[in-house]
Write a protein that binds this DNA or RNA. Structure first.
Lengths: 126, 126
DNA sequence: TTTACTGTCCTAGTTAATTAGGACAGTAAC
DNA sequence: GTTACTGTCCTAATTAACTAGGACAGTAAA
């Protein structure tokens, strides 16, 4: 895995798993890769993966069964959707609005976003 | 200044000055605070500010006159608008669209952004 | 009970970011 | 030339993130 600079690796690993949970690639009750397995796979140290898993356990999105492994907790998706949405609305959106202002961006610049939002809304109606 | 974790201080200082340039608080030709002055003001080390200024000099948004200080370069704003917009469109927007999808966000969640974009467009017409 | 997984704890070493502050040189006003 | 700014270079020390890998304990199946 290619890790970007400017963001800690253990957070990026957490983000990757969170994304897999939100997209449904990982379902509640699923076993996530063992600490050692993922470490080898991503070419990082065991301890770094451990740190990601500890973070996710603290967030209540995975459960830990000693000697067996880590599992996606039953309410992970609901918890994450709520948590990430709140972070987005309170932290990212204000910064985004400000940036749109100073960069004088126009609706056309956000076409891709509009399309996605409309798609979400249509799926909601059905 | 309160620095957020997860992002290097010298980058945050650069971001702060970039914002002041984009908002017009700092104009082309303006002298920016001296390295020592800003270090005291933000309660960081001289070297950390130096690193921010070196970064901005490398980006071509400030000019350096030895023994005198750093100055906002004449084309800083144009250069920044272009640079930041490109970063936004190529890096942030795709991530944003993806997040909007997995979090099933709706147009209403982005009302503040829409309002700003419309405002930008109206100012453009006048 | 042995085997092969699992997580967990531990010490040790590296690197980058940051701090701390001395020392030196360019610039300009007095 | 002295003074008071400016940037610049330097060494030393601290901290957090990451690496490396040994050692130990829980779990489950052969």
């Amino acid at each position: 895995m290619e890790f970007s600079e400017g963001k800690n690796i253990y957070v990026q690993i957490r983000d990757r798993l969170v994304d897999q949970i939100l997209t449904g690639m990982l379902l509640p009750g699923d076993k996530i890769p063992s600490v050692r397995e993922l470490a080898v796979d991503l070419e990082v140290n065991r301890n770094t993966v451990m740190r990601s898993y500890a973070l996710m356990e603290q967030e209540g999105i995975v459960d830990n069964r000693r000697g067996i492994g880590f599992f996606v907790s039953s309410n992970a998706r609901q918890r994450l959707t709520q948590e990430e949405k709140e972070i987005f609305l309170k932290q990212e959106l204000p910064r985004l609005v400000h940036q749109a202002k100073v960069l004088k961006m126009l609706p056309a610049d956000f076409k891709d976003l509009f399309d996605q939002l409309n798609e979400n809304q249509n799926e909601n109606k059905q």
